[in-house]
Computed example of a mutant assay.
Amino acid sequence: MNYENIAVSTEGNTTVITITRPQALNALNAATITELGNILDKLDGDASCRAIIITGSGEKSFVAGADIKEFSDFGAVQAEELARNGQRTLFNKVENMTKPVIAAVNGFALGGGLELAMACHIRYASENARLGLPEVTLGLIPGYGGTQRLPKLVGKGLANELIFSAKMINATRAKEIGLVNEVFTLEDLLPKSLELAATIASNSPMAIAEAINAVNLSDTDRGYEAEIKSFGLLFEKNDKKEGVTAFLEKRKPNF
Score class of each variant (00 low, 15 high):
1 M>C: 11
3 Y>M: 04
7 A>F: 05
7 A>G: 13
10 T>D: 08
12 G>F: 04
12 G>Y: 01
13 N>P: 04
13 N>K: 15
17 I>V: 13
17 I>M: 01
25 L>Q: 13
25 L>P: 11
28 L>H: 09
28 L>M: 09
29 N>I: 02
34 T>K: 15
35 E>C: 00
37 G>S: 08
40 L>A: 11
42 K>F: 04
43 L>E: 05
44 D>E: 11
47 A>T: 05
48 S>H: 07
49 C>E: 06
52 I>Y: 02
52 I>H: 03
53 I>F: 00
56 G>E: 06
57 S>M: 05
59 E>A: 07
59 E>K: 06
62 F>H: 03
63 V>S: 12
63 V>H: 05
66 A>Y: 07
66 A>I: 10
67 D>R: 08
69 K>D: 11
71 F>S: 15
79 A>T: 14
79 A>Q: 13
79 A>Y: 08
84 R>W: 04
85 N>I: 12
86 G>Y: 02
89 T>K: 15
90 L>G: 03
91 F>H: 03
93 K>P: 07
93 K>E: 02
93 K>D: 02
104 A>W: 00
105 V>I: 10
107 G>I: 02
108 F>I: 05
109 A>K: 01
112 G>C: 04
112 G>M: 03
113 G>H: 01
115 E>I: 00
116 L>R: 07
117 A>Q: 01
119 A>E: 11
122 I>Q: 11
122 I>T: 10
123 R>G: 10
127 E>V: 06
127 E>P: 02
130 R>N: 08
130 R>W: 03
130 R>Q: 14
134 P>F: 00
140 L>S: 13
140 L>M: 14
142 P>I: 02
142 P>Y: 01
144 Y>K: 07
151 P>F: 00
152 K>E: 13
154 V>F: 06
160 N>L: 08
162 L>C: 06
167 K>T: 11
170 N>M: 05
171 A>F: 05
172 T>V: 08
172 T>D: 10
173 R>F: 08
180 V>P: 07
182 E>H: 02
182 E>V: 09
183 V>H: 01
187 E>S: 09
190 L>D: 03
190 L>H: 00
190 L>M: 07
191 P>R: 12
193 S>A: 15
197 A>R: 01
200 I>H: 08
202 S>R: 09
202 S>Y: 01
203 N>G: 15
203 N>W: 15
204 S>C: 05
206 M>T: 12
208 I>T: 15
210 E>H: 14
211 A>T: 14
212 I>S: 09
216 N>W: 09
216 N>I: 00
217 L>T: 09
219 D>E: 15
219 D>R: 14
221 D>N: 10
221 D>I: 11
222 R>I: 02
222 R>H: 14
224 Y>T: 12
224 Y>L: 14
225 E>Q: 13
228 I>V: 05
228 I>M: 13
228 I>N: 06
228 I>A: 10
230 S>G: 10
232 G>W: 07
232 G>E: 05
235 F>A: 08
237 K>R: 13
240 K>M: 12
240 K>T: 07
242 E>F: 12
243 G>R: 00
244 V>G: 02
245 T>H: 12
245 T>L: 14
246 A>R: 02
247 F>K: 10
247 F>S: 10
248 L>D: 02
250 K>Q: 10
251 R>C: 09
252 K>F: 04
252 K>C: 04
253 P>V: 04
253 P>N: 10
255 F>G: 02
